[in-house]
Design a protein around this nucleic acid. Structure first.
Lengths: 200, 200
DNA sequence: CCGACAGTTGACCGATCAGTCAACTTTCCC
DNA sequence: GGGAAAGTTGACTGATCGGTCAACTGTCGG
């Protein structure tokens, strides 16, 4: 029952927080939704911020799974990026249906909130961002090797640009309550790589 | 005294909120900082969210002033965009010095928070975003006329891409506690316009 | 069967919060 | 100067919040 309860708390809290923010969700909300009592929550987490950190890690695990699937090498590197954007957009669309409103990026949104909670949280955020860019960097390097994009581009810098671009579009998706806004990031991503507008 | 007090409340609240979030700042904090009492605050604002809306409007006013100055036509359209990024970065740097940490975009951050507060707030956010893109759209059209960028690009779509790109980089600036991260958006903006890397 | 310990309970606390209110003061216009 | 309206005061409320705690339960090794 041990790991099970902890798992359930994080899962439930994740769902609640993703629809709003960490600050808007109380520990009591989480407990009620998870069918646990306050003491149990604080048995596993020393503080609410620690729960927030666990949620952020969990969100990264989920995003990481999406990334791994999208970046599988059964298609070319540029197509993988497109595939990831589609998966991301579908993820947002599904959440919109479940919650009635389009949330922002599960990582970016919570990250922005927690980055203001001190350096520890900010370090966690940058660690996650680094993990995310790694997928882009690898794909970009492969695209360079294949001659699909200019070999002169710095893969790391380009990857950061792609990530920032995606985060910005995720914000638009939230602001316009429209998951499709994220998909509109695709042509921009191509431009940022100096690659042709289609096929890859 | 009337308008003066209201003004002071919004100004002070803006500073407090920008360093954190609306949720993290209490009405008491605002009152204390403004040297007013609760009743006065609620004399001018029907609710805390209404104060948030006023702050958002104020932030837009300030950003609008920065935009107007940066987009003055004493230089070419592409140079105006660069100039705006520089002004934006300096704005963040100044706030970092005053508050000890790099805040995100004054508009984007608060917008993301308030977009989850209902459709009214979301409408306000989209209105502001539209005002922002207008500057980009005009500059892009002028650049097209001058033959500095491909005349085939849709100015509106391109403007949206630029804005999203900037928002993403503002998030990075916050996450890495480094205002210079925003400046790194510049080459990406050029790529998104299909323009040469320098001079314009 | 026992003792230890992880997990669970639920009442409880002190603090804080958004928002209220009736009384007071100032301003301004007739 | 008088009276109404606008602005201000400061105490107050009811709710909520993060977090605590001592006692209880189940489990598992010896």
């Amino acid at each position: 029952m041990a790991k099970d309860t902890r798992e359930r708390i994080v899962t439930v809290a994740r769902d609640l927080v993703h629809g709003a923010s960490l600050a808007q969700v109380s520990t009591e909300d989480v407990c009620k939704a998870a069918g646990v009592h306050k003491g149990s929550l604080y048995h596993f987490f020393p503080s609410k911020n620690a729960l927030g950190a666990a949620i952020l890690d969990r969100n990264w695990d989920l995003m990481n799974a999406v990334l791994q699937e999208a970046f599988a090498d059964d298609v070319g590197p540029l197509a993988r990026i497109d595939r990831f954007v589609d998966s991301f957009a579908e993820l947002l669309a599904g959440m919109r249906q479940r919650m009635g409103a389009t949330p922002g990026c599960p990582l970016g949104g919570l990250a922005a909130e927690m980055a203001g909670y001190g350096d520890d949280a900010r370090t966690q955020v940058t660690r996650i961002l680094a993990g995310w860019t790694r997928y882009f960097t690898a794909a970009i390097n492969e695209a360079k090797d294949r001659g699909e994009i200019d070999p002169g581009v710095d893969a790391g810098e380009a990857a950061m640009r792609l990530l920032a671009h995606l985060q910005g579009h995720a914000l638009m998706a939230k602001a316009y309550d429209d998951p499709e806004a994220l998909r509109r990031a695709k042509p921009g991503l191509r431009m940022l790589l100096g690659a042709g507008p289609a096929g890859g």
